[in-house]
Design a protein around this nucleic acid. Sequence first.
DNA 1: CTGAAAGCGCTTACAG
DNA 2: CTGAAAGCGCTTACAG
Lengths: 345, 345
Amino acid sequence: MQKKTGPRTPRITIREVASDAGVSVAAVSKVLRDAYGVSEALRAKVQASMEKLNYRPLASARGLRGRTYTIGLLLPDLRNPFFADIFDGVTSALARTQYQAMQGISVTASELVDAMIDRQMDGLILIGPNEMAERISEIAHRVPLVLIGHHEPGDESFDTVNNDDQLGARLVVRHLHANGYRRIAMISLARASTVVSQRELGYRLEMVDHGLGSDTLIIRSTQVLRDVQLAVRRLLESDNRPDAIFCWTDLIAIEAISVATELGVSIPHDVAIVGYDNTMYCDFAQHRLTSVDQSGELLGIQAARLLVERIEGRTAPEHFVVTPRIVARASSAKSSRTSKSGQDR
Amino acid sequence: MQKKTGPRTPRITIREVASDAGVSVAAVSKVLRDAYGVSEALRAKVQASMEKLNYRPLASARGLRGRTYTIGLLLPDLRNPFFADIFDGVTSALARTQYQAMQGISVTASELVDAMIDRQMDGLILIGPNEMAERISEIAHRVPLVLIGHHEPGDESFDTVNNDDQLGARLVVRHLHANGYRRIAMISLARASTVVSQRELGYRLEMVDHGLGSDTLIIRSTQVLRDVQLAVRRLLESDNRPDAIFCWTDLIAIEAISVATELGVSIPHDVAIVGYDNTMYCDFAQHRLTSVDQSGELLGIQAARLLVERIEGRTAPEHFVVTPRIVARASSAKSSRTSKSGQDR
DNA sequence: CTGAAAGCGCTTACAG
DNA sequence: CTGAAAGCGCTTACAG
């Protein structure tokens, strides 16, 4: 039994392990790091003492000379369910390693990046960062870095993991066109990002390819709920209402469904809604949201793998790209010519 | 311009600041910590040098003797939108302090707690932990600790922040009863937790108070989507189908809405669905989900405040409790006797 | 193979 | 008010 409000329990240090095992501190450190030149006998003794004393090395002390075995994963926000998929991937890839991920959450990654570097993260994974290119390069020169959702690297100091966003957007337009939709609008993100630029580009190009260039309409909105609602409302109440809305991410699409439902606009008959990311909400019967699957979990796995490689010495950049696929559901199935280009997962 | 793949940029240390300012390292440290006994002149010199050199103290080095100014926030998962509300509260409360929050995400907090302590967190906030009582006490003796969603502390070594879960559940039953529902079932969480115990208790007691004791039915499910779907399906397809389902959290309620929609069971006519937490999804037109508001943001703010107080020396425990309120929406509005007990936020 | 010593970047008593 | 020295818990060359 613990005391009611006792003093802090003191921590076991490497020194105590060493004295318990009857060896030097340096020897314990070597066992800890699986370093060269330790006899089996010594290793066994040390390990026995570590277990007996329930020793755990202090990451920050290790970090002062070596590594902290901690990586920072920076998520833009906690409400977009897509990031949960990425997180799952990162976690599963790290499970087999000694590294532990800590998450930081902020749309403006900049300050958080500094905070993470101050805390000796061995490496960072940023998602869809809106930092200027120079800033990213500067970060990469301070700490091993992998970016998820950043095109046009323009520097060799970091790795990237992406899906082909331009193709993903093209698939959406192609799918909608095949289902008889023509006046296809896009809701994009107000904040600059190479990801949404690519999606906008794919959307534009594919519209032109189908002779719909004059129907191209991109509305940009922040992620604030009220702004999104306003943007959708403006589209749905306009004189020549689009017959389909492509939203840059599922969360926005779900908000669009809400506004449409509120206005009595029928989905998919009056308007089709399509999202991006194929998150868990797409499958729900109240949504049945057509979306683009970019395998968030796979992106996370690859990002973690690349980061660990960077930390352990690789310097040549790698850029991993996933091919997205459209997953057709009822939210875009007006015509009887049901799309053959995708299927539920 | 940075080199293509240059070496790591070296970090400015306190020593360099000291030499630039022409003072001792100890003096810089004092300025850094706003400690006693520093003349204005010295402080100004030091601060000028810190800015000029763009100096940032290394948290892990500080932590070796003092604090890291980092607190760990452990979230059970990234998919339940309620935790985003708590996170917002923690962040806003910490914004005025020097502390920075790092998130860890895991249902089984145990390992993550150790990982956070190894990384010298100054304090921890755990949400709805399923740790045994002794384990919690043990953690609290190693690091300042605040628990969100944990009743029956039974120890004085940590603080808690809660809403009155028993009352919240009572409000749900009361509201449903007032709207003409009688066969009210509850979907609870399979994993043990004092939060769900309290909600179950409130549900049971209020059912009895309304003479519905024999209609009491609690089904427990994990949070795995398939399990939830099975549980809901079993309820909706049973011989004497409940006319209302109280789900222990909104995310489950949204999944219940999906299953009901799929089965062609009409909400709220055939069955009412009520959630808990009043997250952003409740307001969406495809849900209009009645829920219990427990002010996640406020809980987060209070937790952060209490934790900082603990870190800075308070030892007497504090237990903050919010009174929940029901927010009635269409998902529970069968009868014309619309509830007067709540309103949209 | 093993260990004594220096050092990582800070803070903390302690002198002056 | 200011600073020199010791120390936090590790890792890293370097001797032996």
